[in-house]
Design a protein around this nucleic acid. Structure first.
Lengths: 205, 205
DNA sequence: TCCTTTTGTCTCCGTCCAGAGACAAATCAT
DNA sequence: ATGATTTGTCTCTGGACGGAGACAAAAGGA
Protein backbone atom coordinates (compact mmCIF):
# COMPACT_ATOMS: atom_id res chain seq x y z
CA UNK A 1 0.00 0.00 0.00
CA UNK A 2 2.97 2.28 0.42
CA UNK A 3 3.27 4.98 -2.19
CA UNK A 4 7.02 4.93 -2.62
CA UNK A 5 8.26 6.11 -5.95
CA UNK A 6 9.54 3.19 -7.91
CA UNK A 7 12.35 5.08 -9.60
CA UNK A 8 14.58 6.97 -7.30
CA UNK A 9 18.31 6.90 -7.71
CA UNK A 10 19.30 8.28 -4.33
CA UNK A 11 17.01 5.85 -2.56
CA UNK A 12 18.47 3.00 -4.58
CA UNK A 13 21.95 4.12 -3.67
CA UNK A 14 20.97 4.09 -0.02
CA UNK A 15 19.49 0.64 -0.41
CA UNK A 16 22.77 -0.56 -1.88
CA UNK A 17 24.77 1.05 0.90
CA UNK A 18 22.80 -0.51 3.68
CA UNK A 19 22.71 -3.81 1.80
CA UNK A 20 26.48 -3.74 1.74
CA UNK A 21 26.52 -3.16 5.46
CA UNK A 22 24.28 -6.09 6.18
CA UNK A 23 26.15 -8.42 3.85
CA UNK A 24 29.38 -7.39 5.50
CA UNK A 25 27.91 -7.83 8.96
CA UNK A 26 26.47 -11.24 8.21
CA UNK A 27 29.07 -12.89 6.05
CA UNK A 28 32.22 -10.82 6.40
CA UNK A 29 34.23 -9.36 3.59
CA UNK A 30 34.66 -12.80 2.09
CA UNK A 31 30.97 -12.78 1.24
CA UNK A 32 31.09 -9.31 -0.22
CA UNK A 33 30.23 -9.80 -3.87
CA UNK A 34 28.24 -7.57 -6.21
CA UNK A 35 25.66 -10.27 -6.70
CA UNK A 36 25.02 -10.69 -3.02
CA UNK A 37 24.86 -7.00 -2.24
CA UNK A 38 22.48 -6.38 -5.10
CA UNK A 39 20.30 -9.29 -4.04
CA UNK A 40 20.22 -8.00 -0.49
CA UNK A 41 19.19 -4.61 -1.81
CA UNK A 42 16.53 -6.14 -4.03
CA UNK A 43 18.07 -4.43 -7.00
CA UNK A 44 19.99 -5.42 -10.08
CA UNK A 45 23.72 -5.66 -9.66
CA UNK A 46 24.44 -3.55 -12.69
CA UNK A 47 23.36 -0.51 -10.71
CA UNK A 48 26.41 -0.96 -8.53
CA UNK A 49 28.60 -0.47 -11.55
CA UNK A 50 26.56 2.36 -12.95
CA UNK A 51 26.31 4.33 -9.75
CA UNK A 52 29.53 3.53 -7.90
CA UNK A 53 31.89 2.26 -10.57
CA UNK A 54 32.41 -1.03 -8.82
CA UNK A 55 31.97 -2.74 -5.49
CA UNK A 56 34.97 -1.00 -4.05
CA UNK A 57 33.47 2.36 -4.92
CA UNK A 58 30.31 1.40 -3.08
CA UNK A 59 32.32 0.25 -0.10
CA UNK A 60 34.23 3.49 -0.09
CA UNK A 61 30.99 5.44 -0.18
CA UNK A 62 29.84 3.57 2.91
CA UNK A 63 33.11 3.95 4.76
CA UNK A 64 33.32 7.66 3.99
CA UNK A 65 30.06 8.24 5.78
CA UNK A 66 30.42 10.35 8.92
CA UNK A 67 30.68 8.64 12.28
CA UNK A 68 31.93 5.49 10.73
CA UNK A 69 35.43 5.35 12.08
CA UNK A 70 35.92 6.40 15.68
CA UNK A 71 37.10 9.97 15.86
CA UNK A 72 39.24 11.60 18.50
CA UNK A 73 36.10 12.87 20.16
CA UNK A 74 34.70 9.34 20.31
CA UNK A 75 37.90 8.11 21.85
CA UNK A 76 37.60 10.83 24.49
CA UNK A 77 34.02 9.84 25.14
CA UNK A 78 32.89 13.28 24.02
CA UNK A 79 34.84 15.36 26.48
CA UNK A 80 38.40 16.06 25.43
CA UNK A 81 39.05 18.45 28.29
CA UNK A 82 38.02 15.89 30.86
CA UNK A 83 40.45 13.39 29.43
CA UNK A 84 43.24 15.94 29.38
CA UNK A 85 42.61 16.72 33.03
CA UNK A 86 43.42 13.15 34.02
CA UNK A 87 46.89 12.15 35.13
CA UNK A 88 48.78 10.37 32.41
CA UNK A 89 48.24 6.76 33.49
CA UNK A 90 44.52 7.22 33.91
CA UNK A 91 44.43 9.16 30.70
CA UNK A 92 46.17 6.43 28.74
CA UNK A 93 44.01 3.76 30.27
CA UNK A 94 40.83 5.73 29.67
CA UNK A 95 41.69 6.37 26.05
CA UNK A 96 42.65 2.77 25.45
CA UNK A 97 39.44 1.53 27.00
CA UNK A 98 37.29 4.07 25.22
CA UNK A 99 38.95 3.06 22.01
CA UNK A 100 38.17 -0.54 22.79
CA UNK A 101 34.52 0.27 23.36
CA UNK A 102 34.39 2.30 20.17
CA UNK A 103 35.65 -0.72 18.28
CA UNK A 104 33.47 -3.25 20.05
CA UNK A 105 30.33 -1.36 19.16
CA UNK A 106 31.32 -0.97 15.51
CA UNK A 107 31.36 -4.46 14.06
CA UNK A 108 31.62 -3.10 10.54
CA UNK A 109 34.76 -1.20 11.41
CA UNK A 110 36.21 -4.37 12.88
CA UNK A 111 35.36 -6.20 9.70
CA UNK A 112 37.18 -3.60 7.63
CA UNK A 113 40.13 -3.65 9.98
CA UNK A 114 40.48 -7.38 9.51
CA UNK A 115 40.25 -6.84 5.79
CA UNK A 116 43.10 -4.38 6.12
CA UNK A 117 45.25 -7.18 7.51
CA UNK A 118 44.37 -9.50 4.67
CA UNK A 119 44.93 -7.47 1.56
CA UNK A 120 45.77 -4.06 0.37
CA UNK A 121 43.51 -2.24 -2.01
CA UNK A 122 42.31 1.30 -2.57
CA UNK A 123 39.86 1.00 0.27
CA UNK A 124 42.27 -0.26 2.85
CA UNK A 125 44.77 2.34 1.72
CA UNK A 126 42.24 5.03 2.52
CA UNK A 127 41.58 3.53 5.93
CA UNK A 128 45.27 3.30 6.53
CA UNK A 129 46.02 6.99 6.07
CA UNK A 130 42.89 8.06 7.89
CA UNK A 131 43.73 5.95 10.90
CA UNK A 132 47.38 6.92 10.87
CA UNK A 133 46.38 10.57 11.03
CA UNK A 134 43.94 10.02 13.86
CA UNK A 135 46.46 8.00 15.82
CA UNK A 136 49.15 10.58 15.52
CA UNK A 137 46.70 13.34 16.38
CA UNK A 138 45.74 11.51 19.54
CA UNK A 139 49.36 11.13 20.50
CA UNK A 140 50.02 14.81 19.82
CA UNK A 141 46.95 16.44 21.28
CA UNK A 142 46.27 14.14 24.17
CA UNK A 143 49.82 13.40 25.29
CA UNK A 144 51.63 16.49 24.09
CA UNK A 145 52.14 17.64 27.66
CA UNK A 146 54.44 14.78 28.55
CA UNK A 147 57.99 15.53 29.61
CA UNK A 148 60.51 15.13 26.85
CA UNK A 149 62.15 12.02 28.14
CA UNK A 150 58.88 10.15 28.11
CA UNK A 151 57.38 12.31 25.40
CA UNK A 152 59.55 10.91 22.68
CA UNK A 153 58.07 7.56 23.45
CA UNK A 154 54.48 8.62 23.24
CA UNK A 155 54.09 7.27 19.74
CA UNK A 156 55.43 3.91 20.78
CA UNK A 157 53.27 3.78 23.89
CA UNK A 158 50.09 4.62 22.04
CA UNK A 159 51.13 2.22 19.30
CA UNK A 160 51.51 -0.63 21.77
CA UNK A 161 48.29 0.09 23.59
CA UNK A 162 46.41 0.72 20.37
CA UNK A 163 47.75 -2.45 18.80
CA UNK A 164 46.87 -4.50 21.87
CA UNK A 165 43.33 -3.17 22.08
CA UNK A 166 42.83 -3.54 18.35
CA UNK A 167 43.97 -7.15 18.33
CA UNK A 168 41.83 -8.06 21.30
CA UNK A 169 38.82 -6.37 19.72
CA UNK A 170 39.39 -8.14 16.42
CA UNK A 171 39.93 -11.44 18.11
CA UNK A 172 36.83 -11.46 20.28
CA UNK A 173 34.67 -11.61 17.17
CA UNK A 174 35.60 -15.22 16.64
CA UNK A 175 37.41 -16.43 19.74
CA UNK A 176 36.26 -15.75 23.22
CA UNK A 177 39.39 -16.39 25.26
CA UNK A 178 42.83 -14.92 24.99
CA UNK A 179 45.45 -15.88 27.51
CA UNK A 180 42.93 -16.61 30.18
CA UNK A 181 40.98 -13.41 29.62
CA UNK A 182 37.35 -13.57 28.63
CA UNK A 183 37.07 -11.04 25.85
CA UNK A 184 33.30 -11.39 25.77
CA UNK A 185 32.82 -10.28 29.34
CA UNK A 186 32.92 -6.87 30.97
CA UNK A 187 35.09 -8.41 33.65
CA UNK A 188 37.70 -9.33 31.07
CA UNK A 189 37.86 -5.81 29.70
CA UNK A 190 37.88 -4.37 33.20
CA UNK A 191 40.93 -6.47 33.92
CA UNK A 192 42.56 -5.13 30.81
CA UNK A 193 41.76 -1.60 31.88
CA UNK A 194 43.24 -2.08 35.32
CA UNK A 195 46.35 -3.62 33.85
CA UNK A 196 46.84 -0.85 31.34
CA UNK A 197 46.59 1.63 34.17
CA UNK A 198 49.19 -0.33 36.11
CA UNK A 199 51.48 -0.52 33.13
CA UNK A 200 51.31 3.20 32.56
CA UNK A 201 51.42 4.18 36.21
CA UNK A 202 55.08 5.12 36.22
CA UNK A 203 54.75 7.39 33.21
CA UNK A 204 53.41 10.26 35.32
CA UNK A 205 54.42 13.60 33.88
CA UNK B 1 67.02 -37.68 -17.07
CA UNK B 2 66.32 -38.06 -13.38
CA UNK B 3 65.28 -41.52 -12.33
CA UNK B 4 62.62 -40.54 -9.80
CA UNK B 5 59.88 -43.08 -9.39
CA UNK B 6 56.78 -41.78 -11.02
CA UNK B 7 54.44 -43.33 -8.51
CA UNK B 8 55.15 -42.49 -4.94
CA UNK B 9 52.43 -41.55 -2.57
CA UNK B 10 54.53 -40.08 0.20
CA UNK B 11 56.45 -37.94 -2.24
CA UNK B 12 53.20 -36.75 -3.74
CA UNK B 13 51.91 -35.89 -0.30
CA UNK B 14 55.04 -33.88 0.33
CA UNK B 15 54.63 -32.11 -2.97
CA UNK B 16 51.09 -31.17 -1.99
CA UNK B 17 52.21 -29.95 1.40
CA UNK B 18 54.90 -27.70 0.08
CA UNK B 19 52.62 -26.56 -2.71
CA UNK B 20 50.13 -25.48 -0.08
CA UNK B 21 52.84 -23.53 1.67
CA UNK B 22 53.88 -21.68 -1.43
CA UNK B 23 50.31 -20.91 -2.46
CA UNK B 24 49.64 -19.61 1.03
CA UNK B 25 52.83 -17.57 1.02
CA UNK B 26 52.18 -16.04 -2.37
CA UNK B 27 48.47 -15.43 -2.40
CA UNK B 28 47.31 -15.70 1.18
CA UNK B 29 44.55 -17.92 2.43
CA UNK B 30 42.13 -16.28 0.03
CA UNK B 31 44.00 -17.96 -2.82
CA UNK B 32 44.01 -21.31 -1.09
CA UNK B 33 41.92 -23.52 -3.36
CA UNK B 34 42.31 -27.19 -4.19
CA UNK B 35 42.78 -26.36 -7.85
CA UNK B 36 45.61 -23.95 -7.20
CA UNK B 37 47.41 -26.16 -4.72
CA UNK B 38 47.20 -29.12 -7.02
CA UNK B 39 48.42 -27.06 -9.95
CA UNK B 40 51.33 -25.77 -7.88
CA UNK B 41 52.18 -29.36 -6.97
CA UNK B 42 51.89 -30.48 -10.57
CA UNK B 43 49.38 -33.09 -9.54
CA UNK B 44 45.71 -33.72 -9.94
CA UNK B 45 43.48 -32.10 -7.36
CA UNK B 46 41.60 -35.29 -6.67
CA UNK B 47 44.63 -36.55 -4.79
CA UNK B 48 44.03 -33.91 -2.15
CA UNK B 49 40.67 -35.47 -1.45
CA UNK B 50 41.94 -39.01 -1.62
CA UNK B 51 44.94 -38.49 0.62
CA UNK B 52 43.84 -35.76 3.00
CA UNK B 53 40.05 -35.80 2.86
CA UNK B 54 39.85 -32.19 1.81
CA UNK B 55 41.89 -29.03 1.66
CA UNK B 56 41.48 -28.42 5.35
CA UNK B 57 42.94 -31.83 6.10
CA UNK B 58 45.95 -30.98 3.98
CA UNK B 59 46.33 -27.66 5.76
CA UNK B 60 46.12 -29.36 9.11
CA UNK B 61 48.80 -31.82 8.05
CA UNK B 62 51.07 -28.90 7.23
CA UNK B 63 50.32 -26.98 10.40
CA UNK B 64 50.84 -30.04 12.58
CA UNK B 65 54.41 -30.32 11.42
CA UNK B 66 56.94 -29.73 14.17
CA UNK B 67 58.51 -26.31 14.57
CA UNK B 68 55.63 -24.65 12.86
CA UNK B 69 54.22 -22.60 15.67
CA UNK B 70 56.67 -20.90 17.99
CA UNK B 71 57.15 -22.94 21.14
CA UNK B 72 58.03 -21.72 24.59
CA UNK B 73 61.64 -22.54 23.87
CA UNK B 74 61.56 -20.41 20.74
CA UNK B 75 60.10 -17.54 22.71
CA UNK B 76 62.96 -17.89 25.18
CA UNK B 77 65.47 -17.91 22.35
CA UNK B 78 66.53 -21.40 23.37
CA UNK B 79 67.58 -20.68 26.93
CA UNK B 80 64.72 -20.71 29.40
CA UNK B 81 67.00 -20.38 32.41
CA UNK B 82 68.62 -17.25 31.03
CA UNK B 83 65.24 -15.65 30.56
CA UNK B 84 64.17 -16.58 34.07
CA UNK B 85 67.34 -14.99 35.47
CA UNK B 86 66.34 -11.60 34.10
CA UNK B 87 64.48 -9.08 36.23
CA UNK B 88 60.80 -8.97 35.40
CA UNK B 89 60.77 -5.91 33.12
CA UNK B 90 63.65 -7.16 31.04
CA UNK B 91 62.14 -10.59 31.04
CA UNK B 92 58.80 -9.38 29.76
CA UNK B 93 60.43 -7.19 27.16
CA UNK B 94 62.74 -9.98 26.03
CA UNK B 95 59.91 -12.45 25.70
CA UNK B 96 57.74 -10.00 23.84
CA UNK B 97 60.53 -9.14 21.45
CA UNK B 98 61.54 -12.76 20.94
CA UNK B 99 57.93 -13.56 20.27
CA UNK B 100 57.83 -10.78 17.71
CA UNK B 101 60.89 -12.14 15.96
CA UNK B 102 59.45 -15.64 15.99
CA UNK B 103 56.39 -14.31 14.24
CA UNK B 104 58.22 -12.10 11.80
CA UNK B 105 60.29 -14.98 10.55
CA UNK B 106 57.27 -17.25 10.13
CA UNK B 107 55.15 -15.71 7.39
CA UNK B 108 53.02 -18.81 7.14
CA UNK B 109 52.14 -18.61 10.79
CA UNK B 110 51.19 -14.98 10.34
CA UNK B 111 48.99 -15.97 7.44
CA UNK B 112 47.21 -18.56 9.56
CA UNK B 113 46.85 -16.09 12.40
CA UNK B 114 45.11 -13.65 10.12
CA UNK B 115 42.90 -16.46 8.94
CA UNK B 116 42.03 -17.09 12.56
CA UNK B 117 40.67 -13.54 12.77
CA UNK B 118 38.56 -14.00 9.68
CA UNK B 119 36.73 -17.23 10.20
CA UNK B 120 36.45 -20.13 12.49
CA UNK B 121 36.91 -23.64 11.22
CA UNK B 122 38.46 -26.87 12.42
CA UNK B 123 41.91 -25.62 11.60
CA UNK B 124 41.66 -22.33 13.41
CA UNK B 125 40.07 -24.10 16.33
CA UNK B 126 43.15 -26.29 16.62
CA UNK B 127 45.43 -23.28 16.48
CA UNK B 128 43.31 -21.56 19.06
CA UNK B 129 43.67 -24.21 21.73
CA UNK B 130 47.32 -24.81 20.95
CA UNK B 131 48.15 -21.15 21.29
CA UNK B 132 46.02 -20.68 24.38
CA UNK B 133 47.95 -23.46 26.07
CA UNK B 134 51.31 -22.06 25.10
CA UNK B 135 50.35 -18.58 26.23
CA UNK B 136 49.16 -19.74 29.61
CA UNK B 137 52.23 -21.91 29.99
CA UNK B 138 54.45 -18.92 29.36
CA UNK B 139 52.59 -16.88 31.93
CA UNK B 140 52.84 -19.68 34.47
CA UNK B 141 56.38 -20.90 33.95
CA UNK B 142 58.06 -17.64 33.08
CA UNK B 143 56.25 -15.30 35.42
CA UNK B 144 55.20 -17.64 38.19
CA UNK B 145 57.64 -16.02 40.58
CA UNK B 146 55.82 -12.72 40.67
CA UNK B 147 54.38 -11.46 43.93
CA UNK B 148 50.70 -12.15 44.36
CA UNK B 149 49.53 -8.59 43.95
CA UNK B 150 51.13 -8.35 40.55
CA UNK B 151 50.97 -12.06 39.91
CA UNK B 152 47.23 -12.12 39.51
CA UNK B 153 47.68 -9.72 36.63
CA UNK B 154 50.27 -11.75 34.82
CA UNK B 155 47.73 -13.14 32.41
CA UNK B 156 46.50 -9.69 31.56
CA UNK B 157 50.00 -8.31 31.14
CA UNK B 158 51.11 -11.10 28.84
CA UNK B 159 47.81 -10.82 27.02
CA UNK B 160 48.32 -7.12 26.37
CA UNK B 161 51.93 -7.49 25.30
CA UNK B 162 51.18 -10.58 23.25
CA UNK B 163 48.22 -8.92 21.58
CA UNK B 164 50.24 -5.81 20.79
CA UNK B 165 53.14 -7.73 19.31
CA UNK B 166 50.81 -9.99 17.37
CA UNK B 167 48.90 -7.11 15.83
CA UNK B 168 52.06 -5.26 14.90
CA UNK B 169 53.50 -8.40 13.34
CA UNK B 170 50.31 -9.07 11.41
CA UNK B 171 50.07 -5.50 10.29
CA UNK B 172 53.59 -5.09 8.96
CA UNK B 173 52.85 -7.64 6.26
CA UNK B 174 50.71 -5.15 4.40
CA UNK B 175 51.25 -1.74 6.01
CA UNK B 176 54.61 -0.38 6.93
CA UNK B 177 53.72 2.36 9.40
CA UNK B 178 51.71 2.26 12.57
CA UNK B 179 51.39 5.35 14.68
CA UNK B 180 54.65 6.77 13.46
CA UNK B 181 56.56 3.53 13.95
CA UNK B 182 58.24 1.87 11.01
CA UNK B 183 57.33 -1.78 11.41
CA UNK B 184 59.65 -2.76 8.59
CA UNK B 185 62.77 -1.44 10.29
CA UNK B 186 64.88 -2.77 13.11
CA UNK B 187 64.79 0.70 14.60
CA UNK B 188 61.02 0.54 14.84
CA UNK B 189 61.09 -2.76 16.68
CA UNK B 190 63.91 -1.55 18.89
CA UNK B 191 61.74 1.37 19.90
CA UNK B 192 58.95 -1.03 20.72
CA UNK B 193 61.31 -3.10 22.82
CA UNK B 194 62.55 -0.09 24.77
CA UNK B 195 59.01 1.05 25.37
CA UNK B 196 57.83 -2.35 26.55
CA UNK B 197 60.70 -2.39 28.99
CA UNK B 198 59.71 1.07 30.21
CA UNK B 199 56.09 0.02 30.56
CA UNK B 200 56.99 -3.02 32.62
CA UNK B 201 59.72 -1.34 34.64
CA UNK B 202 57.60 -0.89 37.74
CA UNK B 203 56.48 -4.49 37.85
CA UNK B 204 59.71 -5.62 39.52
CA UNK B 205 59.09 -8.53 41.83
C1' DT C 1 52.31 -65.15 -15.58
C1' DC C 2 47.76 -63.06 -14.05
C1' DC C 3 45.13 -60.54 -10.96
C1' DT C 4 44.48 -57.05 -7.41
C1' DT C 5 45.56 -52.79 -5.35
C1' DT C 6 47.52 -48.44 -5.52
C1' DT C 7 48.49 -44.23 -7.78
C1' DG C 8 47.38 -40.81 -10.89
C1' DT C 9 44.67 -38.52 -14.85
C1' DC C 10 40.78 -37.03 -17.24
C1' DT C 11 36.10 -35.74 -18.21
C1' DC C 12 32.02 -34.07 -16.62
C1' DC C 13 28.26 -31.58 -13.93
C1' DG C 14 26.09 -27.94 -11.37
C1' DT C 15 26.97 -23.63 -9.25
C1' DC C 16 28.51 -19.17 -8.76
C1' DC C 17 30.70 -15.19 -10.37
C1' DA C 18 31.96 -10.36 -12.87
C1' DG C 19 30.56 -7.65 -16.05
C1' DA C 20 28.93 -6.26 -21.01
C1' DG C 21 25.02 -5.05 -23.69
C1' DA C 22 20.36 -4.89 -25.18
C1' DC C 23 16.11 -3.66 -23.77
C1' DA C 24 11.91 -1.68 -21.26
C1' DA C 25 9.67 1.62 -18.50
C1' DA C 26 9.32 5.85 -16.17
C1' DT C 27 10.40 10.64 -15.81
C1' DC C 28 11.47 15.05 -17.54
C1' DA C 29 11.90 18.91 -20.70
C1' DT C 30 9.75 21.18 -24.27
C1' DA D 1 2.06 15.16 -26.63
C1' DT D 2 6.62 13.85 -28.03
C1' DG D 3 11.30 12.95 -27.82
C1' DA D 4 15.41 12.50 -24.82
C1' DT D 5 17.27 10.99 -20.61
C1' DT D 6 17.30 8.45 -16.51
C1' DT D 7 16.40 4.36 -14.00
C1' DG D 8 16.00 -0.39 -13.75
C1' DT D 9 15.75 -5.38 -15.62
C1' DC D 10 17.12 -9.15 -18.27
C1' DT D 11 20.02 -12.16 -20.90
C1' DC D 12 24.40 -13.72 -22.23
C1' DT D 13 29.39 -14.91 -22.29
C1' DG D 14 33.41 -16.64 -20.47
C1' DG D 15 35.59 -18.42 -16.64
C1' DA D 16 36.73 -20.61 -12.00
C1' DC D 17 35.44 -23.61 -8.72
C1' DG D 18 34.40 -28.12 -5.84
C1' DG D 19 33.97 -32.51 -6.29
C1' DA D 20 32.02 -37.12 -8.34
C1' DG D 21 33.19 -40.87 -11.21
C1' DA D 22 35.21 -43.40 -14.89
C1' DC D 23 39.35 -44.67 -16.59
C1' DA D 24 44.49 -45.85 -17.28
C1' DA D 25 48.85 -47.23 -15.81
C1' DA D 26 52.07 -48.94 -12.65
C1' DA D 27 53.37 -51.82 -8.67
C1' DG D 28 53.09 -55.84 -6.13
C1' DG D 29 51.58 -60.45 -4.72
C1' DA D 30 50.34 -65.11 -6.29
Amino acid sequence: MSERPRRNRSETEDRLKSALKSVLAEGGFGALTPSRVAAAAGVDKMLIYRYFGDLEGLTRAVAKGPDFFPSMEDVCDGDVAAILALPVPDRAAAIAVNFAHCLLERPLVLELMVWELVERNQLTAIMETEREETGLRIARELFGDLADNTGHRVNAITAILGAAVTYLALRQRKIRWFNGIDLKSDAGWAEIEVTIRAMTAHLAA
